[in-house]
Design a protein around this nucleic acid. Structure first.
Lengths: 212, 212
DNA sequence: AGTTGATGCGAGTGTGGCTCATGTTAACTC
DNA sequence: GAGTTAACATGAGCCACACTCGCATCAACT
């Protein structure tokens, strides 16, 4: 994994502490949001001295990024298992399943409503030099990882390898899904069911161009 | 308009100063991003004492929200004019036009790449009380305003008033467009043309369910 | 028991968001 | 034009937060 962490926790105790910090970060995000979240409070609640906190996390952003990454891992883990268990007939079932799992995590995983897998919009990375393509290299977008994984899963499902535009299409689909589901949970803390349904429809219609 | 401002600038001089602050805010957003943007620096560049800054803006968020609102006004103004001038034949032309205008503003309007019309993800508004639907009343989402306006424009275009699901569908479409275009500009500062094309396709396919 | 390197720690520093007491101007009265 | 009052302008200063740094502690090995 990309090292979001300054220092990899070597011993058991450290690893537990890092988990605790992430847990408390998630809870606090739900309580007060990103801006009002303070590193001191996270450290205090996790019963970790502030100095130690900064041994592991370069800054506040890194903390939240680490949480987003943990969320991502959990999500991929879960859909992979569910796919293995379900034995889907059609690619639309995969859409259904992925969205449902996302919704499920929104409902049950602390902090997921605020950050899910995503960077909390932050910095444009300095004066935008012309001609500089910034994605795809260093700070690879998490949604891209999701798309990547879904592509593998899809190709596995469909023995016939789909068209070449599929990669881009999946990325677009993931990004759109993310946005519409955020809307659904903004409108209703439990996730507006109609908007969730629309989200699935949106993705199905769009992907129909790229999949059989 | 909702009063984002603490005090409405009464005299000409004040109004100019508010504009200057918004201008500098936009430029700074492009240079350093939201987190690194400081109210002090905005005030300094706009040649406004910090105290005066806070006469007009309740806090840093309010400043950015005001900018987003100005962007929104400009956008609606422009597409309204372009629609009047173009005399479109089909609703797909409207999609085309709206997306193009959005892209145009991303390219030319300072700060638009960072905030466009949107709140910079911030707070969940205190401990999430169960059963509390938070949208649609006080802090109405800006994208919702866009959707609203587009609905009016669409209905004007199509004399036959479309189905009732249209409102929701437009909202979904706007949200998705926003997300995919953000992706397009993350991948390429000038806006990845292929992703922009995909964005239009996504919306066209989806709305085809709701429009003739 | 001694030596060394990793890890733990929290008082302290710099800075940013925001306020508030005081100074300045505008508007209006007699 | 002097007097009165209310709106507005100003920036030194306060508080709280992100983050550091140098010393303490511990683990491992000799």
């Amino acid at each position: 994994m990309t090292s979001v962490l300054r220092r990899r926790p070597a011993q058991r105790r450290s690893a537990v502490r890092v988990e605790r910090m992430l847990d408390e970060c998630a809870l606090l995000l739900d309580e007060v949001g990103y801006e009002a979240l303070t590193t001191k409070e996270v450290a205090r609640r996790a019963e970790v001295p502030i100095g130690t906190f900064y041994q592991f996390f370069r800054d506040k952003q890194a903390l939240v990024r680490a949480l987003a990454l943990r969320n991502l891992d959990a999500f991929l883990e879960r859909i992979t298992q569910r796919i293995a268990a379900a034995d889907l007939g059609h690619w639309t079932d995969l859409v259904e399943l992925a969205v449902d799992e996302f919704v499920h995590m929104k409902r049950t995983t602390p902090g997921f409503g605020v950050v899910d897998f995503g960077e909390v919009l932050i910095a444009p990375g300095g004066p935008a030099l012309p001609g500089t393509h910034r994605a795809l290299d260093e700070a690879r977008d998490n949604n891209e990882i999701v798309a990547d994984r879904l592509r593998l899963l899809t190709k596995e499902l469909l023995d016939a390898p789909a068209g070449s535009g599929l990669d881009r299409a999946l990325l677009v689909a993931v990004e759109a899904t993310d946005a519409v589901l955020k809307l659904a949970f903004r409108a209703d803390p439990a996730g507006d069911p109609q908007l969730i349904a629309e989200c699935k429809q949106l993705v199905r219609r769009y992907l129909a161009d790229h999949l059989p």
